[in-house]
Amino acid sequence: MVIQKMHEMGIRSEHAYMAAMASIGLTVVAWAGSLKMEPGLDLARADRWGLFVGEWAPTFFGLGLALSHYEQHDGTLTATVHEIREQQKAS
Rank of each mutant, 00 (worst) to 15 (best):
E14T: 09
T80N: 11
A90H: 04
W31D: 02
R48S: 10
V81Q: 08
G50H: 00
E86L: 11
F61N: 01
W31Q: 00
H73F: 05
E83K: 08
G33S: 10
V29Q: 03
L35M: 13
G25V: 12
L65I: 10
E38Q: 11
A20H: 03
M37T: 12
T80Y: 05
E8V: 07
A44E: 08
R85P: 01
A79I: 02
G33C: 04
S34C: 15
R48V: 13
G33V: 01
A57V: 01
M9H: 08
I3Q: 05
M21D: 07
L41T: 10
A66F: 10
S23K: 01
F52I: 12
H73S: 14
T59H: 13
A20Q: 02
E71K: 05
G10F: 08
M1R: 12
I84F: 09
E86W: 03
W31P: 01
G62N: 11
K36M: 09
T27V: 01
G64M: 00
I84L: 12
L35G: 01
S34G: 13
L43C: 01
I84C: 06
K36G: 04
E8P: 05
I84T: 11
D74M: 06
E71Q: 13
Y70D: 02
Q4S: 12
L26M: 11
T59Q: 15
E8T: 11
G50K: 00
A16V: 07
R48K: 09
E86D: 15
S13A: 15
D47H: 08
M18F: 04
M37V: 07
H73P: 00
G54A: 04
V2F: 12
M18D: 03
A79S: 09
E38S: 12
L41I: 07
V28E: 03
Q72H: 12
E55C: 15
T59R: 15
